[in-house]
């Protein structure tokens, strides 16, 4: 069990953020949709299905094709990281919220924000934001596991051992 208030935890948190920002594997998960909706679930006007909106954020990509983090998000994550190091929680949250306004469906950003809340000791917020990240994470199991870990930690710190155990069990599977 990791206590975020101790220095080791701090290093762990930092490394997790590094992983989020730097390594391409779990990075930039912009499009969450892998396939277009089947035609019968599409909007039809005058007998014709409306085309799907264009734009790179909506391009169909599989897990392997995911791009690296967009430069702007990378930059804001880097700001958040240095603000976290100086315990400027408001600043770190602010930077991540700014990034979220640009990429609101990026589950890594939600997870990073959850992590800031956990380090800050705002356990309830941490749990909720990690849950939000999970609803967008699709099949990204490494991200899900990271969120479960945050939720387990936060529940435990909040004195809710039963809920914490549920997430530890999920992690153990």
């Amino acid at each position: 069990m990791i206590n975020f208030r101790n220095p080791f935890a701090f290093i762990f948190g930092f490394m997790a953020m590094m992983q989020l920002a730097g390594c391409a594997s779990s990075a930039r998960v912009a499009p969450d949709r892998s396939v277009p909706a089947p035609i019968e679930e599409r909007a039809i006007v005058d007998g014709k299905a409306l085309p799907l909106p264009e734009g790179p954020d909506l391009r169909i990509e599989t897990m392997q094709e995911r791009k690296v983090v967009s430069p702007v998000v990378k930059r804001l994550i880097a700001s958040a990281r240095s603000q976290t190091l100086s315990q400027d929680w408001d600043g770190a949250s602010g930077s991540l919220e700014r990034a979220l306004r640009i990429e609101p469906r990026n589950p890594n950003l939600w997870s990073a924000l959850a992590e800031v809340k956990c380090e800050q000791g705002a356990w309830q917020k941490c749990i909720q934001l990690a849950a939000k990240s999970n609803t967008l994470s699709r099949a990204d199991s490494s991200l899900r596991r990271r969120n479960w870990h945050l939720m387990a930690t936060a529940h435990k710190a909040n004195g809710n051992n039963e809920a914490a155990q549920q997430f530890f069990d999920k992690l153990a599977k």
Binding site: R42, A43, I44, V45, A49, L50, L52, P53
Partner: peptide, 23 residues
């Protein structure tokens, strides 16, 4: 609720949209 727009009482809002935004 998407179905209410595609096939139901909310149909009227779709006319004029260029793309399918899954409203």
């Amino acid at each position: 609720l998407q179905d209410a727009v595609r096939n139901g009482t909310g149909r009227v809002v779709l006319r004029g949209f260029e793309y399918d935004y899954g409203i």
